[in-house]
């Protein structure tokens, strides 16, 4: 078995620090907690979460950016963990489905998904929910057409789409009612 050398070319004077290609220490802030691991730079955020940190709530459906099952937030923006390297997320705040709710209480969006039966097999669901919550924060849930378009980055092969929309509508309306009451 061979080990990979750190680097082949001599770094130029204005060249940056080289890490890898072997395992290096990577520190991630995930759901408010700093997690350390030794991984190669090629390890995706998705595989780091699932295989290294046992945060398996984030799903792998395609590993090519084509399904949205791996949706997480980096610095509170929804992104795809499969096309993100774990090492590139140092100094960023990663939030996964496991960090969405505290204790036993469900996040309102989780409750709405449950009540609207907005899933069947549940495999796309964490990604849908991470997208849905972000969608409301972004202000892209104005009407159904907007929800449809802005939720189209998350495939659901069980095709729970109409129910996903109704779950989102409910949380949107609750939030609006809450704001109006204040």
């Amino acid at each position: 078995m061979k080990s990979y050398q750190a680097t082949r070319t001599a770094p130029a004077p204005d060249s940056a620090v080289v890490r890898g290609p072997g395992e290096v220490e990577v520190r991630l802030r995930v759901n408010g907690e700093v997690r350390r691991m030794f991984v190669e730079p090629r390890v995706s955020l998705l595989d780091a979460l699932r295989d290294r940190l046992d945060l398996h709530g984030t799903k792998k459906g395609c590993n090519q950016g084509a399904c949205g099952a791996c949706t997480v937030w980096v610095d509170r923006r929804r992104v795809l963990a499969c096309l993100t390297l774990a090492i590139s997320c140092e100094n960023r705040e990663v939030t996964t489905i496991e960090g969405l709710s505290e204790g036993d209480t469900l996040h309102p969006m989780q409750q709405a998904f449950l009540d609207a039966d907005a899933f069947q097999c549940g495999y796309c669901t964490p990604g849908q929910i991470m997208s849905a919550v972000a969608l409301l924060d972004e202000g892209h849930a104005g009407d159904d057409d907007e929800i449809r378009e802005w939720m189209s980055g998350n495939l659901c092969r069980c095709a729970a789409y109409p129910h996903i929309r109704s779950a989102i509508r409910r949380v949107r309306d609750e939030q609006e009612a809450g704001r109006a009451a204040r």
């Binding site: 996964t96 489905i97 469900l106 449950l114 009540d115 899933f119 549940g122 669901t125």
Partner: peptide, 21 residues
Amino acid sequence: LNRVDGRFKVRGESRYSAEVP
């Protein structure tokens, strides 16, 4: 009735077969 396994699914807690420790 809501799905009995629904709570686990919306929290990402259900373990699918590649996720069993």
